[in-house]
Structure formats: structure tokens, C-alpha cells
Design a protein around this nucleic acid. Structure first.
Lengths: 147, 147
DNA sequence: CATCTATTAATAATTGTTCTCTTTTTATTT
DNA sequence: AAATAAAAAGAGAACAATTATTAATAGATG
């Protein structure tokens, strides 16, 4: 069995275990996110799936990303460009967004110290909040827009 | 001269130095932001100014915050709640947002290590971006929503 | 004082997202 | 394998935040 198929089988199990039905649309949306590195928004997912699923509506994609988010299979990114992007990598990693073209990239292997349990506790004590998650965004000009 | 008046005089000079006209509306919007701790969005600013400036329109506030942002007197906060909030404190400090009620608070005096010149350089080298700014958001449940 | 330009206010238009309703599909039980 | 109930998809209207357009107004400039 191919690695790719194996991954998808796992997703099916995650959905079923949460009593959420497995549909072609859901698998397709997840597949787009899993196989892309550009953190697409709903419209980009829509356009990507159009050829293969011409009947699929925007509303379905909105509903699907919401479900996938609730289940914890994807996470939202909001860089303030007006639409929400999605990332199938749900680990807590920083992102960098281009203020010219909107492009969003992951930042890997950079030593970002905060966010350990220690910091979380400190913030909870000082603010009175219960901290659930965090997002670190950098903003700048991407290589392409420099040209 | 009162401290408050002094602050406003300075703002006037900043605007004039950038060839931007000083108008009652602009001063009023800035004043709301400078004297609030709740990081209001456009609608909250609008409602706040309604009694004193009943003729002021939402569009004016949208344009005003844009001008103030360009000039560097305020910064945007986007916690993904659907509308943009504004902060007259333009220093680089983290924020925490309540996922229940949307409330946004500053995080002060917490030891957030990143963001020094060293990290910036590392990110620029690894990503090819020119880094201009960053935003660190925490999300959780605020004290009020816990009750 | 007259003119020129920037700003305001009102309104229309746009965009991303959500909602409602009907039809279709899925998972389950015979 | 067919029947069934529940969930999901599809279509389009509705919505809310924001932006663009326009005409009127105010301030600055010569």
C-alpha cells in the first residue's frame, strides 16, 4: 500500500472515530491541504478542486474546513489579508507572510524559545486567562516580491 | 499644560510633519485609542464617538485608522474574530484574545525571548524574506468568561 | 477674497463568510 | 442487497466588514 493511501486511511479513521461521516469532498479538501505548501484559503481550495469536482460548492468547502478544524486535522492561519488560510500541519510553528502578495510560508528549524510550559504558566498568572494556543506571525517582503 | 494636552500636541506635530491635515475627527479617533485599553475595532470607536460627534460616519473612521496606521501612530491587531482591532501602543508586545467573547488584552512584562536582531537575521536567511514586523497572539478563555 | 486641494459624510459596491432550504449520500439495520 | 434515518452537499440568498465613489465642505494658499 502506498504511503499516500495509508495517510488517507488514517484520516478516515479519525473522522469515523468522531462519528463524522467520510465523504469524497472531505477527503478531497484534506488532500489538497496535505499536499500543498502554500497554506491555501477557501477560494484557492475551491479553484484547485474545480476540475476534479465541478459540482462542489464554496459552501461545502467552508463547512468542510470547519469540520476538519474542529477535529484537529488542520489549523487556521489569519495573517490579516482578509481571508483565512489553512494548514494541515497542526504543529505549533511560526509563519511568515508577505505584505505585498499575501503569500504565507512556514518557518522551520528556527530556534523560537517561548511557548514552553513555563511561559504559558507565567502568562496565565499575569493575565488570568487560560491559554489554549498561540500563533506567531512574521511579516515582510518575500523573495519574489523583492524582484 | 496638562499631560494629556501635551500628548495631543505631539500627535498634531507628527501629522503635520507628514503633510497630513489635523482634523477634529482624526484627533478624536486617536484620542479614543490612546485612552482605551480594550483595543477597540472600528465599530467600537464609532459607538464611542457617537455622542460627541453624531455626524461622524463609519467610513471616516475606517479612513482615519488607515491614516494613523500608515503614519505609525497606531497598529492593527487581527485575532481572527472577523474585524480588526487597533492599538495606540505601537511597541512590539504580545496580545491575548478570548475565544469566547473576543476581548483582547496586552501582555506586559513577560519574558518573551525571540524577536531580537539575531532571530530576525536567522529567519531572513532561512526564508529569503525581509522581515518587517511580527505579531505574537495567545488565545484562551478570559477571567470573565470562566465564570 | 477666490481658488485649489484634502477631507468628510452618505451611499453604493465588493468581498469573504454564513445561513436556509432541498436534494443527495452515507452508514446502519434489516 | 434493500430500506431507513441521519448527516452532508449544493445552490443561492443573506450578512457583515470593508472599500470605493461621489458630492459637499472646510482649510490652506496665493
Amino acid at each position: 500500500m502506498l504511503k499516500e493511501e495509508l495517510k488517507m486511511k488514517n484520516i478516515e479513521q479519525v473522522l469515523r472515530s468522531k462519528k463524522i461521516k467520510v465523504t469524497p469532498q472531505r477527503m478531497a479538501v484534506y488532500s489538497v491541504l496535505k499536499n500543498s505548501t502554500n497554506h491555501p484559503n477557501v477560494d484557492m481550495i475551491y479553484k484547485k478542486l474545480k476540475p476534479e469536482y465541478p459540482a462542489m460548492s464554496l459552501a461545502t468547502i467552508y463547512k468542510t474546513v470547519e469540520v476538519l478544524k474542529q477535529v484537529g486535522l488542520i489549523q487556521e492561519l489569519n495573517t490579516g489579508e482578509g481571508s483565512i488560510r489553512y494548514d494541515a500541519n497542526t504543529s505549533n510553528h511560526p509563519h511568515i507572510a508577505c505584505i505585498e502578495c499575501g503569500r504565507v510560508d512556514d518557518i522551520h528549524d528556527v530556534n523560537i524559545p517561548p511557548c514552553g510550559g513555563e511561559l504559558k504558566t507565567e502568562i496565565e498568572e499575569k493575565t488570568g486567562y487560560t491559554v489554549q494556543k498561540q500563533q506567531l506571525y512574521f511579516f515582510g517582503i518575500c523573495p519574489d516580491c523583492h524582484k
